[in-house]
């Protein structure tokens, strides 16, 4: 029993150490967001928090400056993320379900293509994709950011794995009730896929909210940028605008963490049930 307790203490110690590693940056970002930019340049991030230098001025600045573009970026990020998530969930669940429940000619070949898209980073092809966006008049627009990733391959993979565990008797029952194949999907199966939707909401929204490379390529107009790209424009070789950068960074983290906390249960459950079959 003693050994049992000792091992428990050791485990908690190890786990806490890594939790500290995970959470420390947030503590310092939060603290720094209350300090004037000059202070950041002078003393950076140190163990001493210098509470006496705290001020709300930079938050006031973020909320008052019209030309900062900050809220435009924020609104863009929210909009792109919502559109990407809704579109992505709709399309990937549809495709993943089709691959998961039906046995049809070409199924394996299509699944191999899904794996191929999963394995080849889009960055390899960003040059022609960039030209294609210009040709399709999607350059510097929301759909230019969103469409290439709408059928997100990892989400297709996930929905496929999850759907192959659905009770197939329900399909026959639905057919007897006169539902079409799509009716079965929309009316019968979607409710059963709910945990998978929770998990993929996080995966897709997170990817879109945090995307860097592709939005940087496809967006030009500073009024169309997203939060990460906008923030990175505040980091320049000529000196960084920390007055906006630090509170901006803190505000950028908040919504996605809220989504996570609201979906946390279904996320962990979803990943567990969806499982990785290898």
């Amino acid at each position: 029993m003693k050994a049992f307790r000792a091992s428990r203490a050791a485990m908690i110690a190890v786990l806490s150490l890594f939790a500290l590693f995970s959470l420390t940056p947030f503590y310092f970002l939060l603290i720094s967001s209350f300090k004037p930019g000059v202070e950041m340049i002078r003393s950076g991030i140190s163990l001493n928090p210098h509470f006496e230098k705290f001020t709300l001025n930079m938050y006031k600045l973020v909320f008052s400056l019209d030309e900062s573009n900050f809220f435009i970026w924020y609104k863009n990020s929210l909009l792109y993320t919502c559109v990407q998530t809704v579109l992505g969930l709709g399309l990937t669940s549809f495709v993943g379900y089709g691959l998961g429940v039906y046995k049809f000619k070409g199924r394996n070949a299509i699944f191999v293509l899904v794996l191929l898209v999963m394995m080849v980073p889009l960055e390899i092809m960003m040059i022609p994709l960039y030209k294609e966006m210009i040709a399709l008049r999607l350059f510097d627009s929301m759909f230019g950011v969103v469409l290439p990733f709408a059928v997100f391959p990892s989400a297709v993979f996930f929905f496929r794995q999850y759907s192959s565990g659905l009770p197939l008797e329900l399909m026959d029952a639905g057919r007897i009730d006169g539902l079409t194949e799509y009716g079965i999907f929309f009316r019968v199966m979607i409710p059963l896929l709910k945990p998978a939707f929770g998990a993929m909401t996080i995966l897709i929204s997170m990817n879109c909210w945090n995307a860097i490379v592709w939005p940087m390529v496809v967006l030009r107009n500073s009024k169309k940028l997203t939060i990460p790209i906008g923030l990175s424009t505040l980091i320049t070789p000529y000196g960084n605008n920390y007055d906006l950068l630090m509170p901006g960074a803190v505000l950028a983290i908040v919504p996605i963490i809220l989504i996570f906390i609201l979906n946390q249960r279904s996320f962990i459950e979803g990943l567990t049930t969806g499982g990785v079959k290898g």
Partner: peptide
């Protein structure tokens, strides 16, 4: 706690 960093933009993390 371990998962929250993943929710943070790498640009924001890079600043820290």
């Amino acid at each position: 706690a371990y998962f929250i960093p993943q929710l943070t933009s790498v640009i924001v993390a890079g600043i820290f």
